[in-house]
């Protein structure tokens, strides 16, 4: 009997997996051990309520926070949390917001994000591992200043709510990167100790369920 059950689960997983692929939305996440996977819903990011916050140490003293507003992209995730969320999120460097217009312009300059040359920052998830209920470690690829590096982020499902247009889902992901890994080295050694190398990121995402069009 246990063997039959296991085979049934395998078959069901395979069918569901094929179902994902055939919808054109390729979920790039996979779990190490998931007994059964429900149909994921597609979530389109609500730019007004999605932002990335970055934190960096200034002159070896305080932590300075800035925002990248109006994130765009999609998330694919089964509402029963049977599989990890799959993210494809883009931030436009032009949407940087430090609270100072002058600083925003400097951050968009060639010494930092270089908005004219690298206008977008992109994160695409590759796989996920469950850390707890609605908490996942998501491994993915972060592209910043034209450099793509593998990163790990801890994501929690903030909540599932209802908006006038349907379901809304929120996530919060945190990760720490070294900006020098992405070629953003100004202010670490040259000039010395001006800004830290480590950058902590909190990516706050809220999105709306996108209902698949009903075929006539």
């Amino acid at each position: 009997m246990p063997l039959t059950t296991a085979l049934s689960i395998l078959a069901l997983s395979g069918i569901l997996g094929f179902g994902f692929m055939s919808r054109g939305e390729v979920p790039r996440s996979s779990t190490a051990i998931v007994a059964s996977v429900s149909e994921p819903i597609n979530i389109k990011l609500d730019a007004v309520h999605s932002a990335a916050l970055f934190r960096i140490q200034h002159l070896g003293a305080g932590f300075f926070w800035g925002r990248l507003n109006a994130l765009e992209g999609t998330v694919s995730w089964p509402l029963d949390d049977s599989a990890p969320p799959s993210f494809a999120v883009t931030a436009k460097v032009a949407n940087i917001d430090s609270g100072s217009e002058k600083l925003d312009a400097n951050l968009q300059g060639p010494n930092f994000f270089s908005a004219k040359e690298f206008p977008e920052i992109r994160f695409v998830s590759v796989s996920g591992t469950r850390l707890g209920e609605k908490v996942w470690r998501i491994d993915g690829e972060l592209t910043l200043r034209g450099v793509t590096k593998s990163v790990s982020t801890e994501c929690l499902v903030a909540g599932i709510g209802k908006g006038p247009m349907g379901k809304k889902v929120g996530f919060e992901c945190t990760l720490t990167i070294k900006r020098s890994d992405f070629g953003m080295e100004w202010g670490i050694e040259k000039p010395p100790k001006m800004l830290g190398d480590e950058v902590r990121l909190i990516i706050a995402i809220e999105g709306d369920e996108v209902k698949a069009a009903v075929a006539e």
Partner: peptide, 15 residues
């Protein structure tokens, strides 16, 4: 929006 910062490199990276 300049502050009264005593940061010697204030002009370079704003603030």
């Amino acid at each position: 929006d300049a502050s009264d910062s005593a940061d010697p490199m204030d002009g370079i990276y704003g603030g």
